[in-house]
Amino acid sequence: MTKLAGGDIFSPVRSALAGVAVAMALFQLSACTSTDTQIVDTSSPSGLSSGQARNTGTFPNLNIPPQSAASQISDAEKAEKLSELKTAQSSQEAEGGAVPSDEELLKKLAATHAQKTLSEIEGK
């Protein structure tokens, strides 16, 4: 292998490739910058439901417990509603034998829906 005064024959190639690599990196970094200047509106949003966050300049207090939107049902109310549902279920089972499954209901709906749609299309 032929040696140059400062090293081997590949050192000029290596320095050229290093220069190209640095130039490519700088080119890619320049793509991240922008010359467009946009004015940001810092005024407070109009209306209560603007859908945007409002900067009050303070941190939120996370120690305040959230307020519920509606009163919660008590255990007694829950038991009462559950017993009403069980009563309704047992009365349906007594009338028809067994409560139809979801699959049966969907098949019946598909059959009646198809007939109804065809009659509407045909204008009958």
Rank of each mutant, 00 (worst) to 15 (best):
L105M: 12
S44E: 13
V20C: 06
L109I: 10
C32E: 08
Q89R: 15
V99H: 05
E84T: 14
V20N: 02
T35P: 02
G96Y: 15
T56D: 09
K3I: 06
A21D: 04
P45A: 02
D75L: 09
S43A: 14
F59R: 07
G7V: 01
T42Y: 12
E84S: 15
H113I: 04
S44D: 09
T58H: 10
A31I: 06
T58V: 12
S30A: 10
F59S: 11
V40M: 08
N63W: 03
T2M: 13
L109W: 05
L106N: 11
A98I: 13
L29G: 06
G57I: 02
S43I: 02
A114K: 13
E103W: 06
E120I: 05
T112K: 09
L106Q: 13
S71I: 03
G97H: 07
V99M: 14
G47Q: 00
L26W: 08
E93I: 15
I73P: 12
E84P: 02
G97W: 06
E95H: 07
A94F: 04
S71E: 05
T58Q: 13
N61G: 05
Q38A: 09
P65E: 06
A16K: 12
Q67P: 00
Q52D: 02
A69V: 08
I9Q: 02
S83G: 02
A114H: 07
E80W: 10
S91M: 15
A5K: 11
V13N: 01
Q92R: 14
A76V: 13
L118F: 14
A76P: 01
E95V: 14
M24C: 08
I73V: 10
A98C: 02
I39G: 07
A18D: 11
S46I: 14
S30T: 04
E122G: 08
T33A: 11
S90G: 01
S101Y: 04
A94H: 05
E80Y: 11
S49K: 14
K124P: 00
T112G: 01
A111Q: 10
T2S: 14
A23V: 06
A16L: 13
A5C: 00
G7L: 00
M24F: 03
